[in-house]
Design a protein around this nucleic acid. Sequence first.
DNA 1: TTAGAATATGAATAAGTGTTCATATATTCT
DNA 2: AGAATATATGAACACTTATTCATATTCTAA
Lengths: 116, 116
Amino acid sequence: MKGCEHEALHDDLAERARQSMPDDESILSLAAAFKAISEPSRLKILFALRQGEMCVYHITRAVGSTQSAVSHQLRILREGHIIRARRDGQNIVYSLADAHVVAVLALACEHLNCAF
Amino acid sequence: MKGCEHEALHDDLAERARQSMPDDESILSLAAAFKAISEPSRLKILFALRQGEMCVYHITRAVGSTQSAVSHQLRILREGHIIRARRDGQNIVYSLADAHVVAVLALACEHLNCAF
DNA sequence: TTAGAATATGAATAAGTGTTCATATATTCT
DNA sequence: AGAATATATGAACACTTATTCATATTCTAA
């Protein structure tokens, strides 16, 4: 494999791309963030939280899953800085971390011609 | 588990969330799109393609992987409608599908306080 | 402080996924 | 047409991950 060498210009392009590549740590952080929102069960949680902050029980009802499964997923979303947790008495209330999350969801829906 | 029933208001919230939940097909499409951009190796390809369209050989060089691995990853990105393929003689030239991709990457970088 | 309720977590299992190796397909050149 | 090149693909293996079940933790109320 030698590539389209008739366009030596592209060798430069590849070299520039290699040099401007983010470091592994940044790539891993980005991957973790996207991975957090790339599972159907977690996406459902995010769509639920778009309606407003909710405790675990209500999230569980909104997405139609079990308490344990939701709790595990919430942890991943929390660690990916996609959602925030706040204690309110006996409950823990979750909400979307910031406007970026809503914006990314909106962009993706637009990208796929969804209606959300 | 009964939830924070002292705020009967949240029962309505959960119910509204349940009703406004996108259908499973939409959720799966979204998940597939995000999953496509949630792997370090594929993210590197996207960052490479931000420099401009490239053939497989140059992508391989830019990300420092093997031809086969890159080809498999390109398929996933293609099927997730993240990138476009176009034949140019003996080569296949890949490029980012649309501005949404760049925008999502930028938002995520902003979200994580990255510099890209 | 003890009982009860809401949420979190560890272990186990089942399903999904990335890479490698070998090979197939498609295109160009002679 | 045949050889050479660029890219794609199938199978296999290692690794990751989502869910379930049982249990732990953290808070409130009495």
